[in-house]
C-alpha cells in the first residue's frame, strides 16, 4: 500500500518541470497519506469497530433485487461545441464525467446533492446542477461548462466582471456562480419572473439587486463574496439589457 503511494508520488515528481497546481496538490496529498498510513498501520489494531446499523431499518418498502454488476454504456456528449464519444458506467453523473473522464475540472464538486450550485453548467442553454444529471440521459444535448464560455483568451463578459469586481475570495464556487449568472440573465431576458417579482403580469423583468440575490440563491459562497458577485452581475445585466435598476 505504502509502496503504491510513494511510487505514484515519485512518478508525478519526475514530471515536476511541467507540473500543474493540481498535480502538485496530488503529490503532497499522496506523500502525506503514505506517512499517515504507515503510522496508522501500527495503531489500527486497537481501534473500536464502527456501530452496526439496526437490522429493522433496512429499506423494506421496495423489493430487494440482488445487486447487479456495473453497467457500461456508450454515450455521445456535446460539450463546449465538441463531440465526445464515451463509454461510461450508467451511474456516472455529468459532473463526474466532466471532471474524471474529460479533465474539465473547472466545474466544481461541492455538496454533490444539488444544494450548493458549485457544479452549475448550461444544458441546452439552461442552467442546471451537473451533480444531479446522469450523463447517459444527456445524449445529444448541448452542454456548456465554464471552459466553454471564453473565446480563446477573450473572457466572457461575466468572467471579466467577476475579475473587475473581485466577485470571489477562494474561487471554488466561482465557475458555478458564473455559469449560473449567465443562465440567469438568459432567463431574465426571456421575461421569467422570480419569487420576489411583485407583479406576475409583467413580461419585462428589471433586475434589481433583490432580484439578482433571489435568482442566484442556488449558488452558495462560503467566503460570502455576495456583495461583489451582485456588483459583477448587475454590471453585465445593465450592459446587455440597458435596463436601469
Amino acid at each position: 500500500m505504502n509502496d503504491e503511494f510513494t511510487n505514484e508520488a515519485e512518478e508525478l515528481l519526475q514530471d515536476r518541470v511541467t507540473m500543474t497546481r493540481r498535480q502538485a496538490i496530488k503529490v503532497t496529498a499522496l506523500t502525506g497519506a503514505a506517512i499517515a498510513a504507515a503510522q496508522f498501520g501500527v495503531l489500527a489494531a486497537g481501534l473500536p469497530k464502527p456501530l452496526p446499523i439496526p437490522a429493522n431499518t433496512a429499506n423494506a418498502s421496495m423489493p430487494a433485487p440482488a445487486d447487479i454488476a456495473p453497467q457500461l454504456m456508450a454515450v455521445e456528449l456535446q460539450i463546449n461545441g465538441k463531440a465526445h464519444s464515451l463509454t461510461l458506467d450508467t451511474r456516472t453523473t455529468l459532473l463526474d464525467t466532466l471532471r474524471e473522464s474529460l479533465g474539465l475540472t473547472g466545474t466544481k464538486k461541492g455538496c454533490d446533492h444539488g444544494q450548493c450550485g458549485a457544479c452549475t453548467v448550461l444544458i441546452d442553454g439552461r442552467r442546471a446542477n451537473a451533480c444531479l444529471a446522469l450523463a447517459v440521459m444527456l445524449d445529444g444535448t448541448e452542454i456548456t461548462t465554464i471552459e466553454g464560455l471564453s473565446k480563446g483568451d477573450q473572457l466572457h463578459p461575466m468572467q471579466q466582471a467577476f475579475l473587475t469586481h473581485d466577485g470571489f475570495q477562494c474561487g471554488y464556487c466561482t465557475p458555478g456562480q458564473i455559469c449560473s449568472s449567465v443562465g440567469m440573465l438568459n432567463e431574465a431576458a426571456a421575461g421569467m419572473h422570480s419569487h420576489v417579482t411583485s407583479d406576475l403580469s409583467l413580461t419585462q423583468v428589471t433586475l434589481t439587486d433583490d432580484e439578482i440575490r433571489e435568482r442566484m440563491s442556488g449558488n452558495l459562497c462560503r467566503c460570502s463574496a455576495y456583495p461583489n458577485i451582485v456588483n459583477a452581475i448587475r454590471e453585465v445585466s445593465k450592459a446587455t439589457s440597458g435596463v436601469q435598476s
Binding site: 444539488g114 450550485g117 452549475t120 444544458i123 439552461r126 442552467r127 442546471a128 446542477n129 444531479l132 444529471a133 449560473s180 443562465g183 440567469m184 432567463e187 419572473h193 422570480s194 419569487h195 406576475l200 403580469s201 435568482r215 442566484m216 440563491s217 442556488g218 449558488n219
Partner: peptide
C-alpha cells in the same frame, strides 16, 4: 398559470433553486 393560477406560480418559484427548477 401566471394569469389564472398565481399561487401555483408563486409556490413553484419559492421552492428549490433556479438550477433545480430547470431540471
Amino acid at each position: 398559470v401566471r394569469t389564472n393560477y398565481g399561487v401555483l406560480s408563486r409556490a413553484l418559484l419559492s421552492g428549490a433553486s433556479g438550477q433545480l427548477r430547470n431540471l
